[in-house]
Amino acid sequence: MTDHKINFTPEQITALFIDTARSGDTELLSQFLEAGMPVDCIDSRGYTPLIVATYNDNLEAAKLLLEKGANPDAADLKGATALSGVAFKGFDTIADLLIEHGASVDKPNHAGRTPLMFAVMFGREAMVTKLLKAGANPDHKDIEDVSARILAQRQGLEHLFS
Rank of each mutant, 00 (worst) to 15 (best):
G79N: 11
G79D: 09
G79I: 03
A80M: 10
A80G: 10
T81C: 08
T81R: 05
T81S: 13
A82N: 05
A82Y: 04
A82Q: 13
L83W: 01
L83N: 03
L83S: 08
L83C: 05
G85W: 12
G85M: 10
V86H: 03
A87Q: 09
A87D: 12
A87H: 11
F88W: 15
F88T: 13
F88V: 13
F88E: 14
G90T: 11
G90S: 15
G90Y: 12
G90W: 12
F91R: 03
F91D: 03
T93V: 12
T93W: 10
T93E: 15
T93N: 08
I94L: 06
A95H: 05
A95N: 11
D96F: 07
D96G: 05
D96Y: 06
D96W: 04
L98A: 04
L98V: 11
I99P: 00
E100A: 15
E100M: 09
E100Y: 04
G102C: 09
G102H: 14
G102L: 06
G102V: 10
A103I: 12
A103L: 10
A103T: 06
A103C: 11
S104C: 06
S104G: 12
V105Y: 06
V105E: 01
V105Q: 08
D106R: 05
K107E: 12
K107N: 14
K107T: 10
P108G: 04
P108Y: 00
P108D: 02
P108C: 02
P108H: 01
N109F: 02
N109A: 13
H110C: 07
H110P: 00
H110Y: 13
A111E: 15
A111Q: 15
G112N: 12
G112V: 06
G112T: 02
G112Q: 02
R113S: 13
R113V: 03
R113T: 07
T114L: 03
T114D: 02
T114V: 10
T114W: 02
P115L: 01
P115W: 01
M117V: 04
M117L: 05
M117H: 05
M117W: 07
M117Q: 04
M117P: 00
F118K: 02
F118P: 00
F118Q: 01
A119T: 03
A119F: 01
V120K: 05
V120S: 03
M121T: 07
M121V: 05
F122Y: 12
F122S: 11
F122M: 15
F122A: 10
F122R: 11
G123V: 01
G123Q: 10
G123N: 09
G123M: 03
R124F: 08
